[in-house]
Amino acid sequence: MTEAMIATILSGLVLGSLYAMMASGLSVVWTTLGVFNFAHGALMTLGAYVAWTISEYLGLGLAAGMVAGTLAAALAGIVIERLLVRPFYTNRNMLLITVMTTLAAMIIIEKGTQVIWGPRLKQLPRIADGELFIFGSAISVHEALIVLIAPVTLIALWAFTARTLTGRSLRAAGQNQTAAALIGIHVPHAYGLAYALSAGLAGFTGVLLGSIRFLTPTLGSEPLVKAMTVVILGGLGSLGATAGAAFVIGFLEAFLVLTVGLYWTPSLLFLTMIVVLIFRPNGLFGGRS
């Protein structure tokens, strides 16, 4: 294997890991509430900025920043669910309305970030310094850690929703509100919890991303578009399919950057998505809508 190929594979792994974490957060809210959370990317941004404030501005260290960023995003998620999603549960056009209210939430967070923290670039420190050499190809320890953290997070998320009673109650509330209520599940709490979980995951992802890229108020918007491509390909229905699609996109993107270059990669990714959709309107891995 050539060095370029190894570098491509490593880069695909890092990208795929980040996309998987973003897209699985979107998937949690979608499968529980039937809402596509446009504010997901902005919650990542919020998490990164709060982490920066705690870690760098107050000098309390990255670990504290990571926790604070995750919690702040989770809290914002609860507020979004309570104010912008819950009032529309019984609305016939809930899907469209919540696209618009969460879009509004995205604008509020994004512009709010700009007003609070200003437009100057910031950066979070890396989890660990140094580089690793894999078959002669360099990868930073930080990125290697992301590649490890992502599957652990995803498996934890899967185990929570599939194995624990609380996690199962989220899925149950998503599949049948009435039946869930009858067996004693407090459905609004389940919805709030799903939102908090997804938003917390977004915040955590934002912290990881914030030490690879510079912090800007739009830190999360480009990744959000990628995460959308992922959920279009993988469908929104199951965590496994979403994670699978994330790595497919991650590797494809790394491969395209290598072969056609950075400029044409987005177009070709989009084209791939369209071609898949023409043959499989419910996504590459999506069985049903």
Binding site: A172, Q175, N176, T178, A179, L182, I183, H186
Partner: peptide
Amino acid sequence: RASDIGAAGLAHSPQGNTLFGEMGVAEI
């Protein structure tokens, strides 16, 4: 609330219940 009533042991098997389609029997 329905969930509180259910929690108090008043169980209700509704008509034509579709339950949780994407979950397994034992899990449900």
